[in-house]
Simulated assay, not measured.
Amino acid sequence: MILPVVLYGHPVLRREAEEIDEDYNGLKELLDDMWQTMYKSDGVGLAAPQIGKPIRLAVIDADVLSDEYPECKDFKRVLINPVITEYGEDECVESEGCLSLPGIREDVKRPTKIKIEYEDENFEVIEEVLEGFVARVVQHEYDHLEGKVFTDHLSPLKRRFLKGKLAAISKGKVNVGYKIKTA
């Protein structure tokens, strides 16, 4: 089932998400719904808070970016209860967008390398070192689980310039090809 994507301004996007365990009711169906919602919305990642669920769960399929970023090839993951345990020192600036902030793309500086520990859909513990754009995608989704959005990484001046657009998004005044939900 395709779920509505929660837009900027909804309080769930500012809440730190809670861990889940293998007894979480309806997890398989929720994951199926998240994949469908992400693909229908043309996203490469979707965190549970973006569909109104304040839990530490995200899905990512970055393979569509592999022509430009080879490290994204075959990168399809379910991240349950992820924790970024290390950030590399090198940083790079790249353009980012977000399904919850439609129509806004901005350059964001992030570390180019991370180490992350998470559980997969079978609750097997995985530890990975990720580099390049795939590390950026994971950090973007991870931010959602921490109650952050990518515009939080912008300068105060840049955020001030975006104030009108963000206000319009929070009121649902956007034209997108997917279901949305405001506060």
Rank of each mutant, 00 (worst) to 15 (best):
E96P: 02
L99F: 10
L99N: 04
L99I: 11
S100A: 08
L101C: 13
L101S: 03
I104C: 01
I104L: 11
E106A: 14
D107T: 07
V108I: 15
R110I: 05
P111D: 09
T112A: 13
K113Y: 03
I114L: 06
I114P: 02
K115S: 11
K115C: 03
I116C: 06
I116L: 09
Y118K: 09
Y118E: 06
E119T: 03
D120K: 08
E121K: 15
F123R: 05
F123I: 12
E124V: 13
V125Q: 13
V125T: 15
I126V: 15
E127T: 15
E128W: 09
L130F: 06
L130D: 07
E131T: 15
F133Q: 08
R136W: 04
V137W: 08
V138R: 04
Q139G: 05
Q139T: 07
D143Q: 03
E146G: 02
E146N: 14
E146L: 14
G147L: 01
K148D: 05
V149P: 00
T151L: 12
T151D: 06
D152E: 11
D152W: 06
D152Q: 08
H153Y: 15
L154F: 00
L154S: 01
S155G: 02
S155F: 00
S155C: 03
S155P: 00
L157S: 13
R159T: 00
R159S: 02
R160F: 13
R160I: 00
L162N: 03
K163Y: 11
K163W: 09
G164E: 14
K165T: 04
K165P: 01
K165F: 04
K165A: 13
K165H: 12
L166K: 08
A168Q: 14
S170N: 11
K171Y: 08
G172M: 06
K173V: 04
K173W: 06
V174C: 07
V174A: 10
N175E: 15
N175R: 14
V176K: 09
G177Q: 13
Y178N: 09
